[in-house]
Design a binder for these strands. Structure first.
Length: 328
DNA sequence: AACAGTACCAACCGCTCTCAC
DNA sequence: GGTGAGAGCGGTTGGTACTGT
């Protein structure tokens, strides 16, 4: 049994708003406000519209100080950085761009910006465009019936692709080519890839290994990067206010559904959680994991590998500039 | 000029979240 | 703590404008 509809679907008008409807809605809200009840509002002013439709029209179009189109390069840069960091949290991204609506940004991203970043890889002659074997690698990641693509969302894959692109896959010091920066179990070889074949292999290994680390329970100290602190209202991201450290605890099944972990990290963590294990076994894994890490590195504190990803990408403005194709 | 393909964007849909009761 | 209504959000759709053939 589904929930009751918010309005009488048969008696509401759909489709584009007329100037008269706009005027009615605008005049009423400017004089009386919404009254905290969008559902009742259309009846009050004699509009045959759903309350949700009224809300959307007001927020996305009629509200004062709304900007449409003409995104600046600075806005592009912020949108890209935030998308890579937090994914399709359009409302949060919109909060950082005064006058922009989430819908506007979402449309702009889906129709233009995404193509600008990801779409140009095949025809690009750019020095950082991907080599042929890397194209294959991405197809493996984004791809089809086998492998990691089955479990990573399109958004996460997109962000990984952007991330890899911004990291500069040719660089032997990039995260993907430097196992020393990887989570302990993945960085076993400690080899830095210096040729495309090895780099490709490392990229694939990174993704697939994330799948196989099922059941591990790892502390991921997660500092908010300086970039995020500067550009994002952290309080809106749902991080704990007292500490930035996030303890990923598999024993709490609700944890991953809270906003404490957002986006890609959560998805990777989900991959690790795919395999069902008892709490005891998980705890044992965790203890072993931490002990091994401590033994190898002298401290559990430096197990801050996720920061190695976030920090490096968010600070690579020059790479972002490179991909966007214009000077910042 | 006519048509097809593409790009863009407003609006809708359905789900989750929040909060009052 | 459980429930339900409204608000908010992100994904998707459909219509229109634009561009190329």
């Amino acid at each position: 049994m589904g929930r009751a509809p918010c309005c009488d679907k048969a008696n509401v008008k759909k489709g584009p708003w007329s100037p008269e409807e706009d005027a009615k809605l605008k005049a009423y809200i400017e004089e009386h406000g919404t009254g905290g009840n969008w559902i009742a509002l259309p009846q009050k002013i004699g509009l045959k519209r759903c309350g949700k439709s009224c809300r959307l029209r007001w927020l996305n179009y009629l509200r004062p100080n709304i900007k449409h189109g003409g995104f600046s390069e600075e806005e592009d840069r912020i949108i890209c950085s935030l998308y890579i960091s937090i994914g399709s949290r359009w409302s949060i991204i919109a909060a950082q761009l005064p006058g922009r609506t989430d819908n506007d940004i979402k449309n702009y991203w889906n129709t233009r910006l995404k193509k600008k970043l990801l779409g140009k890889r095949r025809e690009s002659t750019h020095s950082r465009s991907l080599p042929v074997n890397q194209e294959r690698s991405e197809e493996g990641v984004t791809g089809n019936n086998e492998g990691p693509s089955q479990t990573l969302s399109a958004s996460a894959l997109e962000r990984m692709q952007l991330h890899m692109k911004l990291q500069g896959l040719y660089s032997p010091f990039s995260f993907y080519n430097n196992p020393a920066l990887w989570p302990p179990k993945l960085g076993a070889t400690n080899e830095i890839a210096t040729n495309p074949t090895q780099q490709l292999s490392n990229c694939n290994a990174f993704v697939s290994a994330n799948q196989t680390m099922a059941g591990n329970k790892v502390e991921m100290p997660r500092d908010i990067s300086p970039y995020m602190q500067e550009h994002v209202d952290i309080s809106k991201l749902g991080f704990p206010t007292s500490t930035n450290n996030v303890s990923i605890d598999n024993s709490n099944s609700n944890f991953l559904s809270t906003p404490n972990i957002i986006g890609l990290e959560a998805e990777l963590q989900d991959l690790w959680d795919v395999e069902e294990e008892s709490l005891e076994a998980q705890e044992e894994h965790r203890t072993t994991e931490l002990d091994c890490f401590e033994e190898a590195n002298g401290s559990k504190e430096s197990m801050n590998w996720w920061d190695n990803i976030n920090g490096s990408a968010l600070h690579s403005d020059s790479m972002l500039q490179d991909v966007l194709g214009y000077d910042l």
